[in-house]
Amino acid sequence: MRDQGHPPVISYSPTLVTVYLLRDGRLEPVRIPVASDSADNIITTLFRAGKLPPKPGLSSALDEFSHYDTESTRYSDTAERNDPVDNQGYRLNVIITGTGKVSREGLAQITCTIRQNKQASIWSVEVTRLFPGTPESLGDHTCFEYRDLAAKGVRLPP
């Protein structure tokens, strides 16, 4: 038997995404490796990072909730936007489950995490709480509306 050299090695370089967790009620970005930068993976990573924060002192306003699904739709509210017709974006609907009311900080975490990683294609983020109880839309958001929640020195995406 002849030696044919070293066996093949598969090299894996994870994609890093930025998720927003909370420190003293303020949004703080944290870089976390993910298998891919799909919207579904990004949101799943946000919920997982909140339950097991990667740095001391970080927390999440989403601990009582779980990510259920994400759906994107063509942005159709052109009356409010001044964008060229051929530059169409999407609205991402993040569907969650859990009891209680999602706080403004929780909405900011979801919205700013998506906007940070998908700025070019996602124009707004809609959050829907599916169950238990009656499904409830928590509105259509951009990260700009949460700029007052940014930690000192943190610049949030649009």
Rank of each mutant, 00 (worst) to 15 (best):
S36P: 01
P56L: 06
K152L: 05
P54C: 06
N117H: 11
E64I: 02
R23T: 04
Y75N: 12
I96D: 06
F47G: 08
N93H: 09
Q109F: 08
R23G: 05
I114D: 04
F47N: 09
E136I: 07
Q4G: 07
F131L: 10
D140S: 13
Y68I: 02
D40V: 08
A150R: 00
L58Q: 11
H67C: 02
R104F: 07
P33I: 11
R91M: 11
L52M: 05
E126Q: 10
D37P: 00
A120N: 06
L130D: 13
L16Q: 15
L22G: 06
A49D: 04
L58N: 07
A120D: 14
Y90D: 13
T78N: 07
E145A: 05
T111F: 09
A39W: 11
I32R: 13
I43M: 12
R74S: 08
L52F: 13
F65T: 03
V94A: 07
L21E: 02
T70V: 12
R115E: 02
R2D: 15
R81L: 14
H67S: 07
T45Q: 11
P135Q: 06
G89T: 06
P56Y: 14
T99P: 01
A49S: 15
T142H: 05
K152D: 11
G89D: 05
A108S: 02
K51Y: 10
D69K: 12
R155S: 10
Q109Y: 11
W123K: 10
N117A: 08
N93A: 13
G57N: 09
L22C: 04
P132L: 09
G98M: 09
P132K: 10
T134G: 00
I32K: 05
C112R: 02
D3V: 00
D3R: 11
G50S: 05
G139M: 09
T44F: 14
V102W: 06
A35K: 11
L21S: 02
V154R: 00
A108D: 06
H67K: 10
S13T: 15
G133F: 15
R129G: 04
S60C: 01
E136V: 09
R129Y: 11
K55C: 01
S60L: 01
I42P: 01
L27V: 00
R115N: 01
D86I: 03
N93W: 03
K55M: 01
G106Q: 03
P157Y: 09
A151C: 01
Q119P: 03
E28A: 08
A35L: 09
G133R: 12
R147F: 03
R91Q: 15
K51W: 12
T73S: 14
L149C: 00
L138F: 14
I95G: 00
S38N: 06
N117I: 10
I95F: 10
P84K: 14
R81W: 13
K101L: 12
A150S: 03
V34Y: 12
S36W: 02
I96E: 11
D37F: 08
A39E: 15
S137M: 03
H67R: 12
N87I: 06
K118V: 12
L156T: 00
V34T: 09
R2I: 13
